[in-house]
Write a protein that binds this DNA or RNA. Sequence first.
DNA 1: GACCTGCTGCGGCCTG
Length: 734
Amino acid sequence: MIEEYQRLDKRVQKWLFNQGWPDLREIQKRAIAPILAGDRDLLISASTAAGKTEAFFLPACSAIAEEENGFGILYISPLKALINDQYRRLESLSEMLDMEVTPWHGDSLQSKKKKARKNPSGILLITPESLESLLVREPGWVKQSFASLKYIVIDEFHAFIGTERGKQLLSLLTRLEHITGRISNPIPRVALSATLGELEKVPLSLRPNKSLPCETITSSQHQSTIKVQVKGYLEPLDIMADDTHISAEQQICHEIFRLCRGDSHLVFANSRSRTENIAAQLGDLCEQQVVPNEFFPHHGSLAKELREDLEARLQKETLPTTAICTMTLELGIDIGKVSSVIQVTAPHSVSSLRQRLGRSGRRNSPSILRMLISENELSDKSNIVDGLRLELVQSLAMVRLLIVNNWFEPADTEQMHLSTFLHQILAVIAQWGSVRADQLYSLLCEQGPFKEITIQHFKQLLSHMGTVQLIQQLNSGELVLGIEGERITNFYTFYAVFKTPEEFRIVAGSKTLGTLPVDSLILKDQHIIFGGRRWKVTDIDDNKKVIYVTSTKGGKPPKFSGNGMSIHDRVRQEMFRIYCTGEYRIEVGNQRIDFVNNLGRQLFQEGAYLFKEADLENHPIYQSGKHSYIFTWMGDKVVNTLTVLLIRSGFVCSNFGGVIEVQNSNVDDIKNCLIYLANTELPDETELARTLSLQQKLIEKYDEYLPEDLLTECYGRKAFNSMGTKQWILDNLV
DNA sequence: GACCTGCTGCGGCCTG
């Protein structure tokens, strides 16, 4: 490997020597040859802090060190904060090479942009949105300054796969290759990513037209020790004021206080409002015990300054600090390792549980995960859904899938992303001024990433875009922007493809605490919790979109908006397996390790007993009083399909947590109805989506401009599965 | 009964 090291630029070698590193890491050595070759794509997949960034930049900077004109490396990041981090980290290396590094995003300095605009060279660090804005507004400059581009590197690539933003990014890269005349001689793409499931599928997500081969480098995983405990809590039927029946959440807060005080931890509470609630209660406990508060909330609606203060406090490691957080602390930001991770309520996916677990485990100590799960105390009026202890069993299933099967949800790469496709049509027309339809199709769908769009879809979409004046066709046949298209593309909000709700700022005195989506009801004089503290609303300014508050006692966290969640088939099937066998423990050698505390175990046994008593293993429909419940143990597509089929047949039903409740019905009626449907032609996904109102189908940013037929087809594909449902009925009810 | 990310150009105000 000595030879590999010597292939780096002499000044890079000198920089390495100055760092005092004993040796290059394995992935860093292995990346040198393929990057210097410059004739292939590269996927570097390794856990955080494995040195992925250096693995790319050391050889890539060596390769462009002699290049004087134009950018040599284009670095793309999903976060502005990461660009700032990376800029600092590249400072000394670029100084050694006398190489320019330009951070380019919405908040970076105009002076730096000006300088790079005049004299582009070295490394450009940018977000997809800023790159979009450059292509649309300054295509001539882009063509010149990227003429000798050698590498495109994408950081946190896993965050892009299967998303609207990821689709936009791939389209941007194709457009960049097109504008620089590099379609037939593509610019190598390097993806840096956390460890991914289904690694063999990733190269296609990096370059859908396969015009360059892709090599993959993964770090040899060192197995670390993991300690897991699941604890059960009981939510009392009556919560008394006398403290004998305190709520499950209060019990959980006491436990967090006991476990976390004196060291640093992360508590993931799944929603912003629960995050706020728990942070406030822990703050109260500190006050009651007259000790300094070391519990603080962290989520996306909190003001940047408040978040950064907490991040800095975690990083410094001088004061014990526990963050009660949402996924904002799951990945990306460098906060160092914490002593343990606590999960309150079941996580939404195994892959996010895995990321969270990875945040704990300091040098030479194990990763520690605790899951604190509450279930309702039962009465004779209780619903079977409560009795089964579904949330607890879901948590157990997820722990098993993660630890025993080493499985987590792969990204969904099958979606059409029509809203982003429409966005890219507008962006390309805005960039070129005018374009022929066949050029558009070739660029976006054949060379670019929109492989799922057929000519038929494309024609239908273009014609509708003409009707709503997004575009118009000239006599020559060329497409140009219409009035509405001009309006949208000329406003700065155009560059991002994802949707964000309008928000109110929350202001205390002269300080902004954060933001709230406008759809939550906030009234004057109401008491709220925000930023882990209690406030009273003094005034609301509808025009300026500001809520004024003052400090006070008491209050509830504001309601944040949100959609339902979707659980993968495999998680539900693991739950079913656990119920059927009554066994959740993990086998290690000849032993079975129990990772659940006494109350949790008791709750599990209640659920498993009810499952047996109702014989859900053999009878998926269960009648209780006037209502019936369908347990499919399948993912949401099948559950949604069954629900809509029954609604179309006149039943009143709803689903929650994968269980369908059918009101005023009995088992035989439901069974007969579904078997009858399965024996005839089941309506297809598009037909099922027609049952829903237009409003329910408007989800992504530009959905409102899509023809309803196309939107319905797209929605149907996302939400339903007719064949799978037919099979489920035949397998389980006949 | 969920979470997160990003974008412009310019006018006005403040500080050194």
